[in-house]
């Protein structure tokens, strides 16, 4: 009996959790007169909001821009931090192994604490408001986190493999590229599926460092589009929001098994 009530409560809560998504999705099809009519069932063939959104916003270029930013950020993070993580977990050098603590401590510095000096670096180098600058900022923070993970994963790889290769005359770089890196592939996948959301969904970073570029990352485009359409025309704003959230929703549904496993590993080791 108690079990039944608990199950019903969970189901009800699940529906409540989904309700905002449903409302959101339906809102993208509502015309101007019905946008605040909650229980109005819109005509799902009414595509006007979408076509107006495509016509008046920078959705397509922003989408490409965000994909590129995520791609470069994650590629660089995976490469740099797998190298660092490998060495940190194997080294006998006390300075290098203590980098683990430094990287861990770096995790707690809030962006608001370091944003002004970073902004200043951007202005001084003329890189502010460019995508490479944002990527650099992402890489700096992301590498610290990913290095901790890669170090933890490397510890599970037996050292005997490397010893054998070293005896055969393989260099350290060769050992890393031919033996370690392939074995770290699951760790790399975990990092990609757990952290891509940080970069895709990030708003604070572009707000501070990439505010007035020719093209904006998606979240910045949504923000600016909200500003121009505010209180006048919400339909296209919903359509834009939906289209920019959709890739991550699909990505999540496709990779959720790895993500859900990875989250636990990442949070324990990170």
């Amino acid at each position: 009996m108690g079990m039944r009530i608990a199950q019903a409560a969970v189901m009800l809560l699940a529906l409540l959790f989904l309700a905002p998504f449903l409302l959101f999705f339906l809102n993208t099809f509502k015309d101007k007169d019905h946008i605040y009519d909650t229980f109005h069932m819109p005509n799902l063939l009414y595509w006007d909001n979408y076509s107006r959104m495509f016509a008046t916003s920078d959705f397509i270029p922003s989408l490409g821009y965000t994909i590129l930013i995520c791609l470069f950020t994650l590629l660089i993070i995976v490469l740099f931090s797998s190298m660092a993580g490998y060495i940190i977990s194997r080294t006998r050098n006390r300075w290098i192994s203590s980098l683990y603590l430094l990287f861990a401590a770096g995790q707690i510095v809030p962006i608001q604490t370091s944003m002004l000096p970073i902004y200043k670096i951007g202005v001084a180098t003329g890189m502010i408001n460019t995508a490479p600058f944002l990527i650099l900022v992402y890489v700096a923070g992301g590498c610290a986190f990913a290095t901790l993970l890669f170090a933890a994963f490397t510890r599970t790889i037996p050292e005997a493999l490397e010893e054998a290769a070293a005896i055969d005359g393989c260099s350290r770089a060769g050992i890393f590229a031919r033996i370690i890196l392939p074995l770290l592939r699951p760790a790399a996948a975990t990092i990609v599926v757990t952290t891509i959301y940080w970069y895709w969904n990030d708003f604070t970073g572009p707000l501070i460092y990439l505010n007035s570029g020719e093209v904006s990352p998606l979240m910045m485009t949504v923000y600016k589009f909200m500003g121009t359409n505010n209180t006048v025309d919400w339909g296209p704003v919903y359509a834009l929001c939906f289209m920019s959230a959709l890739p991550m929703i699909v990505f999540f549904l496709l990779t959720q098994n790895r993500l859900l496993k990875g989250l636990v590993v990442a949070s324990v080791k990170g």
Binding site: F24, W200, N201, M219, V222, C241, A245, M248, F252
Partner: peptide
């Protein structure tokens, strides 16, 4: 909900 941005 965790995969959706704060902007959305």
């Amino acid at each position: 909900p965790g995969v959706v941005s704060f902007v959305t």
